[in-house]
């Protein structure tokens, strides 16, 4: 089966800014693609092209077999879009926002009402359904915005930074909903600056920066590719730290870091897991009390830093494009 989203060599320029500089990616039906990148990487631009909102300068984008440039009318019934900033009418109630979209999609009044109730309930908004969205909290707004994009039961859902600005509980809830949608067979293209989010939700991750794909693969592949693992050993006796550090010296690529408070040593061992095993054995045979040890994969933050040369969310956010 061909991928449900196919993007090939997409270019888009805004004045001086090359927002997309040859993006190619594909998403299989029923999977989640995490489009990961720092501010200004081109994530929103890519989503806007796929959601038929803007035309790319060159390249091809196909959703469900239809070219977004040639047949946007056939793409729109298939997709749902939850933009980076909640796009709900603040003067309407949550229920009215949902109802309006249902009616626009051609639902008869009663069907649209039923669908609105259904979604409000699913998104724990039933009590707030009759309140104007202007009175909602940020998290509620996000939820109603996502609900609105699901009214037509889209098969492909674009989520542009769905959890930016949410508290941890709301994030978890949104993650749960996303998983549920995917469980039902929805294909999700999710953009995010949060690595844990991509790690958590995405089947595959495409990392972009300056409008270009710089890496792609599963979270595990990315972590493997960009670096080795770290052996972390916690000792039972703080007095043995120096001795242990000396003995581990031969195993690591870099310097060994010692955390005296936690009585822990960390040493980078590359991708060679056997080396790590031998290191721990060496300590044990020298009579050093090893209380705990494990092999850490690099976090996606490390990956990100290695790939882009800058930290994922450290940069000051740019002005949102008008």
């Amino acid at each position: 089966m061909p991928p449900i989203i196919e993007v090939e060599d997409l270019h888009k320029r805004f004045g001086e800014t090359q927002a997309l500089d040859g993006v190619t990616l594909a998403v299989d039906e029923g999977t989640v693609l995490g489009l990961l990148g720092p501010n200004g990487a081109g994530k929103t631009t890519a989503v806007r092209v796929l959601a038929t909102l803007i035309l790319a300068d060159s390249g091809r984008a196909v959703v469900d077999g239809h070219d977004v440039h040639q047949r946007p009318d056939l793409v729109r019934p298939v997709i749902g879009l939850t933009g980076q900033y909640a796009a709900v009418d603040e003067k309407l109630t949550g229920a009215e926002n949902l109802h309006m979209v249902g009616r626009l999609l051609g639902m008869p009044r009663r069907v649209a009402e039923r669908r609105a109730d259904e979604l409000l309930e699913r998104f724990s908004l039933s009590d707030a359904g009759d309140r104007q969205v202007g009175t909602y909290s940020g998290g509620m707004r996000r939820r109603v915005d996502l609900a609105v994009s699901l009214v037509g039961r889209p098969r492909v859902l674009f989520l542009d930074e769905p959890t930016t600005g949410l508290d941890p509980a709301s994030r978890l809830e949104l993650w749960g909903i996303t998983r549920e949608l995917v469980g039902d067979g929805t294909t999700v293209l999710l953009t995010t600056q949060y690595l844990d989010e991509a790690d958590e939700l995405a089947d595959r991750i495409v990392v972009i920066d300056h409008g270009r794909v710089i890496e792609e693969g599963t979270a595990d592949e990315l972590k493997d590719r960009t670096g080795g693992r770290t052996l972390q050993v916690t000792l039972g006796d703080a007095d043995q730290l120096d001795d242990a550090s000396r003995r581990l010296d031969g195993f690591g690529d870099d310097a060994i870091s010692v955390d005296r408070d936690k009585v822990t040593l960390r040493v980078a061992v590359g991708t060679d897991t056997e080396l790590a095993a031998r290191a721990v054995a060496e300590l044990a045979s020298a009579g050093i009390v090893v209380e705990d040890f494990h092999l850490d994969r690099p976090s996606l933050d490390d990956v990100f830093l290695a790939l882009t040369g800058h930290a994922p969310t450290g940069a000051a956010p740019e002005e949102p494009a008008p």
């Binding site: 626009l104 999609l105 051609g106 639902m107 008869p108 069907v111 039923r114 669908r115 259904e118 979604l119 309930e121 699913r122 699901l150 037509g152 039961r153 889209p154 098969r155 909903i177 549920e180 949608l181 039902d184 067979g185 929805t186």
Partner: peptide
């Protein structure tokens, strides 16, 4: 649990959008 997505073949409610000029008036 609510089905949040469109089953490909049979959708639980069938409805249709008007076309042409009627769509403009409707929307």
């Amino acid at each position: 649990m609510t089905d949040l997505r469109l089953p490909t073949h049979a959708s639980p409610d069938s409805y249709q959008r008007p076309t042409g000029l009627r769509a403009v008036v409707h929307d």
